[in-house]
Design a binder for these strands. Sequence first.
DNA 1: ATGAAAGCGCTAACAC
DNA 2: GTGTTAGCGCTTTCAT
Lengths: 352, 352
Amino acid sequence: MNNTSHNITIGDVAKAAGTSVSTASRVLSGSDYPVSPAKRESVLRAANTLGYEPNMLGRMLKTNTNPSIGIIIPSFQNPFYTQLIMGIEKEAMSCSYFPLVFSSQRSPETERNLINNLIKNRVKGLMISSIDDSPLAVEHFVATGGKVCIFESNYADTDKVVNAKTDMLGAGRTATEYLISQGHRDIAFLSTPFNRASRLMTLDGFKLAMANNGLPFSKEDIITVQYEFDTDSDLYELEAGRKLAGKFLEAWKKKPYTAIVAINDLIAYGIIQGLQEQNVQIPQDISIISFDNIPYSGLINPPLTTMDMPARLLGQRACRMITDSLSSNEDHNGITLSVSAELVVRSSVRAI
Amino acid sequence: MNNTSHNITIGDVAKAAGTSVSTASRVLSGSDYPVSPAKRESVLRAANTLGYEPNMLGRMLKTNTNPSIGIIIPSFQNPFYTQLIMGIEKEAMSCSYFPLVFSSQRSPETERNLINNLIKNRVKGLMISSIDDSPLAVEHFVATGGKVCIFESNYADTDKVVNAKTDMLGAGRTATEYLISQGHRDIAFLSTPFNRASRLMTLDGFKLAMANNGLPFSKEDIITVQYEFDTDSDLYELEAGRKLAGKFLEAWKKKPYTAIVAINDLIAYGIIQGLQEQNVQIPQDISIISFDNIPYSGLINPPLTTMDMPARLLGQRACRMITDSLSSNEDHNGITLSVSAELVVRSSVRAI
DNA sequence: ATGAAAGCGCTAACAC
DNA sequence: GTGTTAGCGCTTTCAT
């Protein structure tokens, strides 16, 4: 086979089939425009013997459409996002949309570049868990006529997009109430910074549950670690969790905590690891609960009690919103999709 | 801002700048063709005030190039692939190539579709961990002038591509020798089917180490589980591992195994889980070692002794091969890139 | 240094 | 039902 042979085009096919390019196009593009069975057949055969592959670039340029939808997540390392992607992919492919998955690597700049590239490629759908502090890039995307779905961001919800999230207020509340039901009263809340709306919601759920049960809590009960970073070889969350464990150990000297709520499973893994290194037993010495229920949470020591977040389902539903508005061209902006979390009891919380 | 306003093109910019489209193109496309500073300036300003975004579709169609490289992995769920992606991404972006990541979801058909879509989009670089039994799709890709790197596949290596892998023979051997050095003589090898070349290599390493140490082994020592499948909500490997545990328990009745080598960490997690459910203690009752060293392996119970595979490094190096041959247009086909694994001792193997 | 014009591969009027 | 043709947005000869 000759590699230097020029790319074969629809014109070549038409010539070989003895038809016009329009006819060839009509059959090759799957148009419903009528073509006689005979011609159709010969076009198909010609295309086949020539090994014709349609050039999507030409098609997309002409039709000003792009059957892809862009997906941007902060990291491939966190199974929560990975499951989200899988939900989106499944839905997208079933609607013949092409999922284009990118990681911003937790860099706002990379995220902006990614969005810009999407614009340049005339991609019209975007689903994103944004880590940028500004909605500008996303707004730019919608200004060019794109539909977007935001899963998470550091800025306020806007009605120019569809928002999709798990009900973190409810989840935070349920988790905390479970701790309380097991007899815990002195509970610490360990988290990465509250620049993410979702983390704030979780915290609000925690506060609500405490207040509803007449349990006091102070600012000192809320422990955060200041810097987000992406180490090259490790899970960032594990590092953060270990740092959190260190800070908690300090706080523990001043107040007899019996339980921890951790902002997510990965962070919890890090906390547990940090604590165990200091010989604190879980759940004997301290209980811990968190959020996500990623696939490893039943495997670690101790098996983690956590709130299951239906990431796939969320991805699927959210994707449907976008594919819908892409094909119908009527948007669903301003609506907020919400799925709720469910308690999964394992062994990291003990009754006292 | 008016959403129905037509897309602004290079022509619009040229008009606003009072230049020809050629001049506008020369500055906007970053060409090194000489343009007077004055004109350049006015083009830039016009582009900026109009909010011009170059249409990559037009550019790619005209230049017959696509600055993207396609990446296909079997699943987003396995952290090994996830780390591989991260290595590739890093390298690709540093060379201004755009990484396009897809999951075949372990479906050969999906994989073929994905490859075909890449061809249709005139993407010229492909890095793949293939699960297809046939190299046809990949060969088709190279026949259209593409460069490809194969990490893993079920078919024989070809010199039409660059192959990149971890030295599984060496890894299998090292792992087994470690077991032997700890006093183990009756060792079982648990794996998903040997349709993957890499699994076969690992097995060969195992056999080699056994033979070199004068240790007998029979077919019965090699335990596999027949079907690969992708459950919707769980890690396929965990299920497979649990099944493997069941089969091993049977075999154990007939032969006093003291150690297991598992084909990878995720499978090992499943095996451990299955064994622990039957109250077998690890490593007291049985030792286990595996391959990958994914980030969770230090966290599970017991912390897993495993061979660390430098997935990121592999991804990075392999990507460089492809970007190189893409920009230089001289290919590196036929060469095989190999990185070697390293033993990480934790607590799942005991000396006897 | 600049511009006019051809053409990448495709689809969609429009005419027949 | 079929074919001719314009043109999507861009780059790149080729003149000047």
